[in-house]
């Protein structure tokens, strides 16, 4: 017993204060929110589009765009770009409420997730129970969801909890491209959650199918299968990206936190 107490003392308190306190220190090589500067692009250049493994980059009438719903944050585009027009910042905040908000463009502000409103916010704002469904997931997204339960992130202090039955849940968190063999189980789980309910898609595969998009063994993610309330991009998303997204959804991050975390 003494050993246990001594060790408890030695290991110390490890919970990060997020979203309060100083901005989180993230690895300098982390590939977070990409920043496009199309003004530097060479006319007619397609290098980044050719290099991208998931067709996350595209050009349309409004110019060059990067769809975070498909992005692996692999940096192949940055490596291929002759002009340095695509850079990845270490900004971990990426979650949005609408599929189209995942598209990053040159000189346009990225629209982070707004809070739930009205009845939904009243119901879930202080207590959110979630059921996780891995549908062709590769264990990395699942691992980073599990990490939120550790002392470092201590998800419980926000009233958010992963529960063992859909009937106890307020929503589901989906990972993976939705393998054909998990499609039915996904629908069954979703149906078993009492209404009103939330659907949260975590990772490129859950949002768009990612690398597996278009293959007959999968369903290109959950986006076209169920109404998604929160998209958390990444491959896998950093635990802080997930935490940030959940807290934004619940209106637990205010403008002050945001300004302090990323002083302009």
């Amino acid at each position: 017993m003494f050993r246990i107490l001594r060790e408890r003392f030695r290991q110390g308190k490890r919970t990060i204060p997020y979203p309060a306190g100083a901005p989180p220190v993230l690895p300098d090589r982390l590939r977070g929110l990409p920043v496009l500067d199309e003004s530097r692009c060479r006319a007619g250049c397609q290098e980044c589009l050719t290099a991208c493994p998931t067709d996350a980059l595209f050009q349309d009438g409004q110019g060059l765009a990067l769809d975070l719903g498909r992005c692996l944050f692999c940096g192949e585009c940055t490596a291929a770009c002759p002009t340095g027009s695509i850079q990845f910042s270490t900004d971990h905040r990426l979650a949005v409420r609408a599929r189209e908000d995942l598209v990053v463009r040159s000189g346009r502000e990225y629209a982070l997730a707004r809070s739930l409103e009205g009845e939904m916010l009243r119901l879930f704002g202080r207590s959110l129970k979630l059921r996780q469904v891995s549908a062709g997931g590769n264990a990395a997204e699942e691992a980073d969801l599990n990490v939120l339960g550790t002392v470092v992130f201590d998800l419980g202090r926000f009233g958010i909890q992963f529960v063992a039955s859909p009937r106890h849940a307020d929503g589901i968190v989906v990972t993976g491209p939705v393998s054909e063999n998990m499609k039915q189980a996904l629908f069954t789980t979703h149906a078993a959650v009492p209404a009103p309910k939330l659907v949260i898609a975590v990772g490129a595969e859950a949002i768009s199918g990612g690398l597996f998009r278009g293959r007959s063994e999968v369903n290109d993610g959950v986006t076209d299968l169920l109404p998604v309330d929160l998209y958390i991009p990444g491959w896998p998303p950093h635990p802080l990206t997930i935490l940030d997204g959940l807290l934004r959804l619940l209106g637990r991050i205010d403008a002050r936190d945001a300004a302090r975390m990323h002083p302009r």
Binding site: T54, G136, G137, M182, E205, E217
Partner: peptide, 25 residues
């Protein structure tokens, strides 16, 4: 079998720009 994503089949004809990433998952 619930997680079957058809990885081996999708590698045929490679290597291509997806291959190394597929290996990572």
């Amino acid at each position: 079998g619930y997680q079957h994503r058809g990885i081996e089949r999708s590698l045929v004809g490679g290597p291509d720009k997806k291959t190394a990433h597929l290996m990572e998952v």
